[in-house]
Simulated assay, not measured.
Amino acid sequence: MITFIPLTGFLGAGKTTTMTAAALALQEQGRKVAVITNDQGVELVDTKLVRSQLDAVAEVTGGCFCCKFEDLVEAIVALVASDDVDTVIAEAVGSCTDLQATVVRPLRQYYGEQMVVAPLTTVVDPLRFLAFDRAAQRGEPESDLSYLFCRQLTEADVIAVNKLDTIKPDKAADLLARLRTDYPNAAVVGYCATGGDHLPELLGAWGGQPGNEAVDLDIDYDRYAAAEAQLAWMNQELDLAAVDGSFDATAWARAVLEHLSTWAKDNDSLIGHAKLTVETGGEDFAKLSVTGAGEEPSLDRAAQSTATSARAVVNARVACEPDDLDRAVQDAVTAADQAHGVTSSATTPVSFKPGYPRPVHRLAAAGA
């Protein structure tokens, strides 16, 4: 019997880091674990990083799990068949919601004899939660993105508050207590995926009973679609070459993301996430990310040596128009090239806005 663990949560919450850390922890317990990444586009930065740490990895691209349901099932079947897997962890697109009805219940109904579907887990960045909450406290109208964020919390069986090290302990305790009050059907767990603090509590929550299995999410698909359409999505590849000698791939990537982060702050554009890998040859690569306008990039992995040439991949999800994101990334790359002695050639920008979500299945709760 296969165990399937579904993760959701807003862009930048740390789903991939959570998924990878959990997979490694479960493997230490003797489980054979595979993971599945998911995105509206192709060429995923996260998949590269995950494959550097785990053997059994698949991806579903070109749409969310609900709209690519059969692709998800095929990925699960292929992983189980090829790698003798007993546990699959999958992270949905960060702008996706309504997964109880469109993914969890269909899997239980149509494949319940082959797999156990664990409680749906929503991964939360506390700083993102507090930012949306401050806007509400100021009396601002609820934005479509805030609406989407709240729907992700409302349908969760487990609310997994990641990055607790980014806020003070007293604020962390208050936040966890508030979430337990506001979402009584969910188990609320606080942890830090990067350091592993309290990760066993999250793993334990996956063995609990779903709290929202019999509850239909009240969701307005027009608002859901509007929220997704606020974000421009870019996946772009670049070939890099040193002008003279070699260059520092990690420093170049940091410069790109710093420039993009500053641009987003100056233009009041929310960053869902911006991630960048630079492959310098063989298994060596740098990976950095930024999840807030004006924030400093975080380093997930540094390149081990300088390079004369490299291949970079940019994944950016920013609340702006696609043409604006294309120009912003182009300007960021140009600035990094000039600062670090690099020439770059890129594929044609392909920023886009997701289409209207159209799930393959949408099942009501039993008895509803």
Results as ranks from 00 to 15, higher is better:
1 M>R: 15
1 M>T: 09
10 F>I: 07
10 F>A: 10
12 G>M: 08
13 A>Y: 06
20 T>A: 08
22 A>G: 03
26 L>W: 12
27 Q>G: 15
28 E>D: 10
29 Q>W: 01
36 I>G: 08
36 I>M: 06
38 N>M: 02
42 V>I: 01
45 V>F: 05
45 V>G: 07
49 L>P: 00
49 L>F: 07
50 V>D: 09
53 Q>R: 14
54 L>W: 03
55 D>S: 14
61 T>C: 14
66 C>T: 04
67 C>D: 15
71 D>E: 12
75 A>M: 10
76 I>R: 00
80 V>D: 09
84 D>M: 01
84 D>K: 14
88 V>Y: 00
90 A>Y: 06
91 E>W: 08
94 G>E: 06
97 T>N: 11
98 D>G: 03
99 L>H: 04
100 Q>G: 04
104 V>R: 11
112 G>W: 04
113 E>D: 15
117 V>P: 03
118 A>M: 04
120 L>Q: 12
123 V>T: 09
124 V>N: 08
124 V>G: 11
125 D>A: 03
125 D>L: 05
128 R>I: 05
128 R>G: 03
130 L>R: 07
130 L>C: 02
131 A>T: 15
133 D>A: 14
133 D>W: 06
142 E>D: 02
143 S>N: 13
143 S>L: 11
147 Y>Q: 08
149 F>A: 08
150 C>V: 15
151 R>P: 09
153 L>R: 04
155 E>M: 08
157 D>C: 06
158 V>N: 09
160 A>T: 09
160 A>H: 06
169 P>K: 04
171 K>Y: 00
172 A>E: 03
172 A>S: 11
174 D>Y: 02
178 R>P: 00
181 T>V: 12
186 A>F: 04
188 V>H: 09
190 G>M: 03
193 A>M: 06
194 T>Y: 06
194 T>V: 13
195 G>Q: 06
195 G>P: 01
199 L>P: 02
203 L>A: 05
205 A>R: 04
214 A>R: 12
214 A>W: 05
216 D>T: 13
217 L>D: 07
222 D>T: 14
224 Y>D: 10
225 A>E: 12
228 E>W: 12
231 L>Q: 07
240 L>C: 05
242 A>N: 08
244 D>G: 05
246 S>K: 08
247 F>G: 09
248 D>E: 15
249 A>K: 03
252 W>V: 09
256 V>Q: 00
259 H>Y: 00
261 S>W: 07
264 A>K: 02
265 K>N: 10
266 D>Q: 14
269 S>E: 13
273 H>A: 06
276 L>I: 13
276 L>T: 00
277 T>M: 07
279 E>L: 12
285 F>N: 05
285 F>W: 07
287 K>P: 00
291 T>F: 02
296 E>C: 06
298 S>M: 01
299 L>T: 15
305 S>D: 10
310 A>F: 03
314 V>Y: 11
317 R>C: 14
318 V>Y: 00
319 A>S: 09
324 D>G: 01
325 L>C: 13
326 D>P: 11
327 R>S: 12
327 R>Q: 15
331 D>V: 00
332 A>C: 07
336 A>E: 01
348 T>R: 12
350 V>T: 01
354 P>T: 02
354 P>E: 05
357 P>S: 14
357 P>G: 15
357 P>D: 14
362 R>D: 06
363 L>M: 05
365 A>I: 02
365 A>S: 10
